[in-house]
Design a protein around this nucleic acid. Structure first.
Lengths: 354, 354
DNA sequence: GAAACTTTTGCACGCGCTTGCAAAAAAGCG
DNA sequence: CGCTTTTTTGCAAGCGCGTGCAAAAGTTTC
């Protein structure tokens, strides 16, 4: 129906003599006709590595230019079984870290000649599995998951459809997808030793209760590292990894009998909440009374009001290695996960010496 | 080549008897064969409003279920000239306000049965025009521009291709696109009267020097509203609409002979920078020494360290009206722009009385 | 200049789907 | 039950493109 309507418009327009300029879409056929060659010729002109003589190539390009032709990626995708589409499935994408990742990913994908489709898994219903199935509808070449963890069945379905999957910070022992993780254990160790050097003795860990693998890895790592020095860790888990949760955790921690003098927050947002809670609800000074370290190094961490010492997500590396893997030859089956290092960015929330 | 390889795999698999489960993609043909009907029947089953008897419909659905079939949107898009794709073209999408908008838009589009393609215009080269042309490659049904302003020629090209365009906060007199704007003038007037009620007499306006239409509208509105009360406005423009620029502007403003006691910041990020500058570089107290109002009401504005009084972007309304218009009947030609109201959210950066 | 190459070109088929059209089946009616 | 009207169905064409194949054109070689 729509197509019919469009067709009609086009014809009318043509009758009025405005020709190609106003035609809905110019096809390879049109270009071929104008250039006086076969349609294959124009198709080959736009296919890197195909056999076309320089002369016809010129002719085709000229005609294409004049008509404003560009290949229809939908049709090309249909033939090639390679749509050039990469799906980014992500929830709560306005979270600073996620937003930065999405920005960097889309950019990198574009420079690699791919295009990003954004799938929002905010609504609770179908969540990730539905989203992943959706990626199949559009024959996406690959999916990159920033949040959620897919069911094994659906993962296999995607892989069998020739799709590649990248999991960022979602470690799990699913095989097939490329997994990118941070060395959370190492970061935790660095945090502990930084706290100790600052003279802290009462360590706490502020986590969310969603229990994402990488968050749990940080928690375990921190507890283990502290144990090596004979220290116990007060762990508080609450809500999501957002400001409010940090605030809430401050309420819990600073109304207890023995209060921490150092807190590792599982991400920066929670650290900000915790800092504001400590400062404004309990009058604590940071870093004199309380040392804090966060994770992600989002932009706000460098704002003077917070000046948060935090671990930096190597966004560039994450993005580069993801896209590189997408373009590499499919070594189907088990894929070696990437393990990236998150360096500590020193600012002002851990004191230098006691 | 890829297609050929896939075909080969499929055949092998079939020979081994694993059948459909492992086949790359199951097509409508497969379903038809299994259900014992024609391919048109299955196509009609998945086309709302098409004529199929309840019985065959059931049979088809069953077969589809068993085989894991879902229509290929690429192929459907090819036929229907309606891909279901909506392009979001945006730069610096990790900016809190933009990120929120992108999140809300993708969500709303999905519930409307569309899917979002994200086009990043960060890199300076082609910018918006290239991006918009890219949307044509994928035969997007529509494009929503959150940043940048397209050339008229390319706009017309998109419109002629049957694409619809939405401009958010990018007012300009381009005709054809649906434009959504805020009532910046009204907001500016509200800001002035709030400052006056607080006893402020030295107004300043902190703007970026990129000169986006909506930002300039706020500036003009503020100056005009102040003039009605016989007050002059010290305008400072610097850099981008980011934290650092606000910081820089603080340096400028508070080293001058006559210092402002009220600043309207063109967005929240700049307001934060200005606040931090005022507080930490100049020891000013907010709101006692200095009143501040921002724009956007991003999440950070409610954080205790800032507690910024600011104008709220009606994100929900923006998103809803955008998507609604996309689905409405094309009233081609001049489209009446939407003019939305941005209410002031009172927090703690404007004092109540003198 | 003819034979043996190599490169370029056009044809025709197919990717997976929608849809107008006419035939077939079902339903309504006196 | 026969006839008309409505609904359902299959056929076939076509959306815009890529690509194997064989014919055509161009190059080299002796």
């Amino acid at each position: 129906m729509v197509a019919a309507a469009r067709k009609r418009v086009q014809d009318t327009v043509n009758n009025y003599g405005f020709m190609q300029l106003n035609k809905s879409f110019v096809s390879a056929d049109d270009v071929a006709k104008r250039a006086g060659v076969s349609r294959s010729a124009v198709s080959r002109t736009f296919t890197p590595g195909a056999s076309v003589s320089e002369e016809t190539r010129q002719r085709v390009m000229e005609a294409a230019q004049a008509l404003g032709y560009h290949v229809n990626q939908l049709a090309r995708g249909l033939m090639r079984s390679e749509s050039g589409i990469v799906c980014l499935v992500v929830s709560e994408m306005d979270t600073p870290y996620r937003a930065r990742l999405v920005r960097a990913l889309t950019h990198e994908l574009q420079t690699a000649g791919k295009i990003a489709m954004l799938i929002n898994t905010d609504r609770s219903d179908g969540s990730v599995d539905t989203a992943l199935r959706q990626t199949l509808h559009y024959r996406a070449d690959a999916s990159i998951l920033l949040s959620g963890l897919p069911d094994k069945a659906i993962t296999r379905l995607c892989l069998n459809s020739g799709q590649r999957i990248v999991l960022i910070n979602r470690d799990d022992d699913i095989e097939g997808p490329f997994r990118i993780n941070l060395d959370d254990g190492q970061a935790a160790r660095v945090a502990v030793s930084a706290f100790l050097r600052a003279g802290c003795r009462h360590l706490a860990f502020a986590n969310s209760d969603v229990g994402t693998p990488s968050l749990m890895a940080r928690e375990r790592g921190f507890i283990a590292a502290a144990a090596e020095f004979g220290l116990e860790v007060r762990v508080v888990r609450h809500g999501n990894t957002v400001y409010e949760s940090g605030r809430k955790i401050a309420q819990t921690l600073f109304t207890e009998a023995v209060q921490p003098d150092a807190v590792f927050c599982v991400n920066d947002l929670m650290a900000f909440g915790l800092m504001d809670g400590a400062r404004y609800d309990f009058g604590l000074n940071i870093p004199e009374d309380l040392c804090i370290v966060g994770f992600d190094d989002i932009e706000q961490s460098s704002w003077t009001s917070y000046n948060l010492t935090t671990f930096s997500q190597p966004v560039d590396e994450i993005v580069k290695s993801s896209v590189a893997w997408l373009q590499s030859d499919a070594t189907a089956g088990r894929v070696r996960p990437a393990n990236l290092h998150a360096p500590l960015i020193w600012r002002k929330t851990i004191r230098n010496k006691l």
